[in-house]
Structures are given as structure tokens and as C-alpha cells.
């Protein structure tokens, strides 16, 4: 079998914050009726975390559920369990109208570590999203754009953020983050 790698193959950068390729991450895009109990049960049963409220992300270890839109979720699972999780969802939902797709290899995931205020500043230089703690507390996901491309990010802890973008623009986003986190570029706004 071919050697599976991420777009950036483990690249890291250390500037005002640490930017690293989060490595292979299993991701499943799910669409369905959030009001349906069977949908909720199927999703939480497979992911092992609580169903997220509007704009929230719930995660336990390397599993999680992120609210993407009123009818879309992103499920995060260990990479090698993605297909098994997908099969389980499809089986649990049966005939119920839904969509579940393995998008693991279509996305790139970054981990940003460092001082929380500096992480917020690094992101704020690239996106119009409100990054104040009041607007984006830990556990809240924000889909927005990063310079010219769509991205989503959330703080899993005040000193760690996860950022997801399309795989095809991973190199571009890494370049943006490198520049935004360059030594000596601190503003100290937050």
C-alpha cells in the first residue's frame, strides 16, 4: 500500500507561536437533520462525544464533533479508524436521509501552540473574524477565511488552537501563518 502523508508531511515552524502540521487526521463531513434523535444518537454513538450546540466543538482526546452549519458537522476520529466510523454511521442511519463522506485526505490540519493572546493575534492578522476571547472562547468553532482561502479554527485550550483548511491550499496557509508568526512581528493587541 502507498505511504499516506499529509500535504505538509509534518512541517513545523517556530516563531512567536509554534505552527505545526497536525499529521494524519480522520475527518468525516456529516449532513443531516440535527433535530432528529436517531441522527444525534448515530453521530454521538460513533464519535463518543456530546452533540455540539450551535457554533460549538466538542472533543475528547483525538475524537471530536464540530458544528459547521445548521445541517453540517465535522467528525474527527483517529485516521486509521475513519472508514470504520463511516461504515458505522451509514449502518446506524440506514434509510434516514443523510450524507457522510470521508474528507480526511481533502483537508489539512494545523496545530497552533503558544501564548493564547499571541495565537489570537497571529490569526487576527489573516482573518476578519472577531478573535477576542469573548467572541471566540475555548470550544467555539469559527468558519471564516484566512487571507484568500476558507478555513475553520477553534481553541481547544487557551494555549492551543486547531486550524483546518483545504489540502490544496495547505502550503499557502502554512506560508501565511509563518509570515504572521514571524519573530519581531508581535503587535500586542490582545
Amino acid at each position: 500500500m502507498s505511504d499516506v502523508v499529509t500535504a505538509l508531511d509534518g512541517a513545523t515552524f517556530n516563531g512567536t507561536i509554534a505552527v505545526e502540521d497536525a499529521g494524519l487526521t480522520g475527518m468525516i463531513t456529516l449532513r443531516g437533520d440535527f433535530a432528529s434523535t436517531s441522527f444525534q444518537n448515530a453521530v454521538t454513538g460513533v464519535s463518543g462525544v456530546n452533540f455540539p450546540g450551535k457554533g460549538e466543538v466538542n472533543s475528547v482526546g483525538d475524537r471530536g464533533l464540530a458544528w459547521m452549519s445548521p445541517d453540517e458537522l465535522l467528525m474527527i476520529v483517529p485516521y486509521d479508524q475513519t472508514n470504520a466510523a463511516l461504515a458505522e454511521i451509514t449502518e446506524n442511519l440506514g434509510e434516514e436521509h443523510h450524507l457522510a463522506v470521508n474528507v480526511s485526505d481533502a483537508r489539512a490540519v494545523f496545530r497552533l501552540r503558544g501564548n493564547g493572546n499571541v495565537i489570537r493575534e497571529v490569526l487576527a492578522k489573516l482573518t476578519p473574524a472577531d478573535l477576542r476571547v469573548a467572541a471566540l472562547p475555548t470550544g467555539r468553532v469559527r468558519r471564516t477565511r484566512l487571507s484568500q482561502v476558507p478555513a475553520a479554527f477553534w481553541f481547544s485550550a487557551e494555549d492551543e488552537a486547531t486550524l483546518i483548511c483545504f489540502r490544496s491550499v495547505a502550503e499557502y496557509v502554512f506560508g501565511l501563518l509563518r509570515q504572521s508568526a514571524a519573530e519581531g512581528s508581535e503587535i500586542g493587541y490582545f
Partner: peptide, 9 residues
């Protein structure tokens, strides 16, 4: 979403 979006988003 309930989020405040900029025109460019």
C-alpha cells in the same frame, strides 16, 4: 451561525 461576518466573508 449567529456570528458577525465581514463583507469579505
Amino acid at each position: 451561525c449567529g456570528v458577525d461576518c465581514d463583507e469579505t466573508e
